[in-house]
């Protein structure tokens, strides 16, 4: 465990040092984040120009949810997606051999190798939208609520991570899976609205196949003060369940691997 943390830290340091060579990328990221945020806020104001509440969510409640969604997608793009993409290339080219040769757990290793640090800009932006939304809502927050929010958000991130890893395990059986990721990503974009707004069939997909219901809606409910403990409990159970299943599938997948072109 300690070794993994040290290793993760070293990878992070390396990524930071590498990226600092290309500082203009920071400006570009800043610009792109601004565009994405502006688009999202324009939509929000278009919607609430017509109504007071959308599916029971007021403007600033929805803005807070949007902030959480932004943070979650930024985490995916910062760490989860680049790592999984590298894993895919490794499996296709057979360079996954090098991972297996190193004396540290393969799953840990493939999960920490890549970091895209400029995505931090998105995380900051998401947090800013969230805080702005909460301040405008004016609802009092207590420490327990904030802690519970942090916990549910963390669980949400872990859940999304296990889903990505689970999908990438398919690559050990069929080599080309990029379409699955694209589909997942597209469906995940539905997470920018609270899932209870969608028709039933979409809700089912968003809960069990692409669990944005747990990853975004549950933390949002907690922070705006609509705490529903049974939802939180289900979220924790589902996350734990998927984590164990993914670990199991991963070990099975490792056995399948036979060094494609090596």
């Amino acid at each position: 465990m300690r070794r993994s943390i040290v290793l993760a830290w070293q990878y992070l340091r390396l990524a930071v040092m590498n990226e600092l060579l290309y500082r203009i990328n920071f400006v570009i990221q800043l610009f792109e984040t601004a565009i994405a945020l502006a688009t999202a806020l324009v939509v929000l104001s278009l919607v609430y120009a017509q109504t007071e509440s959308l599916g029971g969510w007021s403007r600033y409640e929805l803005q807070s949810l949007l902030g959480i969604y932004t943070v979650l997608t930024a985490v995916v793009q910062m760490s989860i997606q680049p790592n999984i993409e590298r894993l895919m290339t490794d499996i296709q080219k057979g360079t996954f051999d090098f991972v297996l040769l190193k004396p540290i757990d393969a799953q840990v290793q493939i999960s920490i190798r890549e970091v895209r640090i400029w995505q931090l800009v998105d995380i900051v932006a998401g947090v800013a939208i969230l805080i702005d939304g909460l301040v405008r809502l004016g609802a009092p927050l207590d420490a327990g609520q904030v802690a519970l929010f942090g916990l549910t958000l963390l669980l949400g991130i872990v859940l999304i991570y296990t889903m990505w890893l689970l999908m990438s395990c398919i690559a050990f059986w069929v080599i080309r899976v990029d379409n699955i990721f694209e589909l997942f990503d597209n469906i995940a974009s539905a997470g920018r609205l609270p899932v209870d707004i969608y028709p039933r069939w979409m809700r089912v997909i968003l809960t069990y196949l692409v669990p944005m219901a747990f990853a975004v809606t549950v933390p949002a409910e907690v922070i705006i003060g609509r705490i529903n403990m049974s939802n939180v409990a289900i979220q924790a159970a589902v996350t734990l369940g998927f984590f164990v299943v993914t670990r199991f599938v991963w070990t099975k997948a490792l056995v399948r691997y036979n060094g494609a072109s090596a």
Partner: peptide, 10 residues
């Protein structure tokens, strides 16, 4: 479908 749901709700 996201937009559709949003505007229909409205």
């Amino acid at each position: 479908m996201i937009y559709l749901v949003m505007w229909s709700a409205l």
